[in-house]
Design a protein around this nucleic acid. Sequence first.
RNA 1: GGAGGGGUGGGUGAGUGGCUUAAACCACCAGACUGUAAAUCUGGCGCCCGGAAGGGCUUCGUAGGUUCGAAUCCUACCCCCUCCA
Length: 395
Amino acid sequence: MTSGAIYELLSTSGGARLGKLTTGHGVVSTPAFMPVATQGSVKTLTTDEVSDLGAHILLANAYHLYLQPGVDVVKGLGGLHRFCRWDKPILTDSGGFQAYSLGSGSKVSDDGITFRSHIDGSSHYLTPESAVRNQVDMGVDVAMCLDQCIAFEATREQVQQAMDRTHRWAERSKSAHEQGAAPGQSLFGIVQGGLHADLRRESAEHITALDFDGYAVGGLGVGEGKGPMYEMTELTTAMLPAGRPRYLMGVGSPEDLVEGVASGIDLFDCALPTRVARNGSLFTAEGRVDITHKRFQDVTGPIEEGCDCYACQRFSAGYVRHLFKAREILGLRLATLHNLRFILRLMEGIREAIEVDGFDAFRREFLGSYVPTDQEARLEQKKRWVAARGVPTEC
RNA sequence: GGAGGGGUGGGUGAGUGGCUUAAACCACCAGACUGUAAAUCUGGCGCCCGGAAGGGCUUCGUAGGUUCGAAUCCUACCCCCUCCA
């Protein structure tokens, strides 16, 4: 019933799709990456800078903005677009993921999610209805249904329970949206089902039957490993209608973006490029490099030869390393500019390749030179991290 | 010349008889970060063998000594700092 974002499939190449997503705040060429502006800000950058990097749509988080400064405050300041001075499309996450990522700070029931604010410890209650209202009230272009994300280690029964709940919440989200959304505001449904192929299929069937403006693949990129993630993505997109955009939530790394596109994904968002940048890890065509390593001390060339980002055009790798070692804020900014530009340039390359039906070659070439970080080391790290923080693996 | 203080691993610096191969921080090395509670976190860091457990060797200015046992106590020497002259 919503007359939200309109998706137009322009062409395909292999499994990859070139498309156009038209929203009330402009057009997004897909496949697209949405820089993450959780609290209405892509950390360290202004929206003008993000725009100059070539981003056409931002992701913000309704949960964070609801806690601080509050939905009414954002609304009072002219809505989210005006608030952060971004006149292009904005998609918001509902806060469903935080029930998962905040671990014991939240509790899920059939009716909704009880959160303990990470800011002041106060208790907050989020329902599918209130989550949609929050997003709509802030004036975002694309709202996400409240869903329940679950750890990949969860039992099948737990996954199914979370999935069923997500389905019921999707229905409630949809009615709430139909009642409260302004023209031009979209709502995307989210497919869950963990790593179970049959549950993924069941979820895709259920969610698409509700007829959303777009569909997201949720619950992936949470430590399950590349193989299962790609497999589930591929399997899920195959179940989604070609005429609607598909969004792989929370993914990803450069290699994940390429693989996601190959599986027919149109939209991505990920905190990885910006977070990793702030920790000194920078993308190059050969993989990630740690700019704080001493070997960069005397490097006069840019972080990456041939990169058109501001940091690479203007400064030596040695200077960027110095900024990190000296803990100068500028280092974080330059690193963020570089990583985001790398990702957005990658998306540009992907789109161009699809347009000339050369995506498979592009994919082979990119993955041939890009060396992802070691997966085993990553899983081990994750275990230690979880153990150290006491984050539960189930909701 | 006199009086006092001090010399500890790459650096700062804790430690005054055994639990000390020696805290902590920095530097250095390696790693992680995927719908952002993250400018964060984790490991390593004398040498040799080992995957590890562990084992061997060598360490607190230098040289002696006391002691079952010394970075810690004693003696001598070398060096540094402060104040007075």
